[in-house]
Computed example of a mutant assay.
Amino acid sequence: MSPVLELTHDLIRRRSVTPEDAGCLPLIATRLERLGFRIEHLRFGDVDNLWATHGDAGPVLAFLGHTDVVPSGPEDRWASPPFEPTERDGLLYGRGAADMKGSVAAMVVALERFVAAQPGHAGTVGLLLTSDEEGVALHGVREVVEHFRRTGQRIDACVVGEPSAKERLGDLMRVGRRGSLSGTLTVHGVQGHVAYPEKARNPIHAFAPALAALAAERWDEGNDDFPPTSFQVSNLNAGTGANNVIPGELVTLFNFRFSTASTAEELRARTEAILRAHDVDFAIDWHLSGMPFLAPQGGRLRDVVAGVCRDLCGIDPEQSTGGGTSDGRFIAPMGAEVIELGPVNATIHKVDECVSLADLERLPDLYAAICERMLASRV
């Protein structure tokens, strides 16, 4: 069994359902420490984080990943046990195979190869891992970055191992991500009997025209790098469960995925203006989970990753800013150029999650090549 496959098997067997790490980080730290990596175990709250570095100068190239996984769901719906790695038909099955224990294993193996081949490499190469990406993401990379700011740790370039590919390894690299702005909206009404509406105020009726206006609003046109900003309601709740009671309150959850064509402040102000224009009595609890970020055209890491995909995968990768959010949103504000590159994402979070064995075997080659092109040996 190859090193990357063996390590992926070992990681999948560990039930690291967020925010549990289940021993993944100590396993990886021990391997890298043997090769001279400096190891920092950073625990914040109930979350374990690992920062492993090799080198003592700039630039700093970091690989970023997470060891936590989402719950498997009913295990009897899986064709094979979700926490027992199983190979069949050219695929490796197991929770986290694609998101993202396969990438984590590939990063570790790539770093081992790179440091063994070039112990005197230029700059610093690092691996940042957390067990709090799939959950609330409060004590993972978000808090690690605050620690880095206090200690003066810099990151110049960062490769995130999130599963990015559509159909085969290297066909898509993410060069940025949209921002995510969420709101919990409470619409106040007056509870009463449905037979006496004049003595009540129905928050559902009050909100309906405003919701139609919010859904129809064109928030921006996007730009060359990002699609237009989108608004989606994810939950709407009101009522007592009785069909003869006008509810006194409505609560709805909504989210903006926004481009650099808008700001969070503008979206908040426009949302509240629409609600006021429809005479809605409301309160909103806003939560900004990440700002949009973009690796610049002509950025060194962006060019290197695109070149590695062309040279090793034989494909000119699509350069996309689509998809959800990733921990890259915390690294980019440090001034780092952030690129995401990983395996096919078709089965992530699903029953029978899997990764191509062929892609998994090739992924360390891609990550090692990025190291070699970003951190050439000292003269």
Rank of each mutant, 00 (worst) to 15 (best):
M1K: 10
P3W: 10
L7P: 01
T8S: 15
V17G: 07
T18R: 15
E20L: 08
D21K: 06
C24Q: 02
C24M: 00
L25P: 00
T30W: 05
R38T: 14
H41F: 15
F44M: 02
D46V: 13
D48K: 04
D48L: 04
N49G: 07
N49Y: 14
G55D: 08
P59G: 07
V60C: 11
V70E: 04
G73Q: 12
E75L: 14
W78D: 03
P82W: 05
F83P: 08
R88I: 00
G90W: 00
D99Y: 02
K101P: 02
G102N: 02
V104I: 08
A110C: 08
L111T: 00
R113F: 04
R113T: 08
A116H: 09
Q118Y: 10
P119G: 12
A122P: 08
G126A: 15
G126N: 08
G126V: 12
L128G: 06
S131L: 09
D132I: 04
H139K: 10
V145E: 02
V145A: 09
R150P: 02
R154W: 06
V160A: 15
E162G: 12
A165L: 11
R168V: 03
R174E: 14
V175C: 13
V175N: 10
R178W: 13
L181S: 05
V190Q: 10
V190T: 14
A195R: 10
P203I: 01
P209M: 14
A210P: 05
A212D: 10
A213L: 07
E221T: 07
G222E: 09
D224V: 05
D224T: 03
P227D: 05
S234N: 10
N237Y: 05
N237E: 14
N237S: 15
G239W: 09
G241I: 03
N244F: 01
V251C: 09
L267T: 04
L275K: 04
L275H: 10
V280T: 09
W286K: 15
S289N: 13
G290W: 15
M291T: 07
G298H: 06
I315T: 06
G324L: 11
I331P: 04
P343T: 11
N345L: 08
T347D: 02
I348W: 00
K350P: 01
D352V: 06
E353I: 02
C354D: 00
L357G: 05
D359C: 01
D365I: 08
L366E: 00
I370Q: 12
R373S: 14
M374L: 08
